[in-house]
Amino acid sequence: MSNNFKAALQSTLSGIWQADTQQRTFRQIMNAFARPGVIETLEGEFLEGDGMLLTLATLLDGATTLADVDGLLSEHDLARLEVSTLAAEQARFVLTHGKVAPAFMPSLGTLESPDTGATIILKIQEIGSGNRLKLTGPGVDGACEVAVNGLHPAWLAAHQEWNSAFPLGVDMLLVAEHQVMALPRTTRIEEIK
């Protein structure tokens, strides 16, 4: 068996490309968006990649667009995701590292079609410890606290600025190893000093 063929076979069998794994993962991501501050631990057979690749495989396909700002994906993975790439200013999904401050202006959507505002997927170090944040807004019962490690403070400022004119805005999904947590545009974030 050639190595190429083996790799192809493995990627077909690998859990993250399976419909049932993606279905379960989507339910976890959906719950994260419905309940900002709730940390979901993704399950799946991680024969390759991690929570990030599983998240992308769950959300993306050829009908949407992605900007891989920090080159976090290999050519091979990009091809398997079947997604078209665009600049961070236009893409519907933006993948970037959370440890550096944003150096782009994502699409915030329009008043008529705010759903065209970007979904920003941020790779960070850890969710559950680190800088403490207080969250309020839809999906949060009163207020909740969550800690994140490896998120540049400029992202919190950007979340506030980009989402200052609802319904325009961006929605963020933090991914750390196998954990995900969402900060949709309606969430108000306060740093607990």
Partner: peptide, 13 residues
């Protein structure tokens, strides 16, 4: 997947 992406935006807005 298309429906799922729409659901996430629906929740966010």
């Amino acid at each position: 997947k298309e429906v799922r992406r729409a659901i996430l935006k629906a929740i966010s807005i």
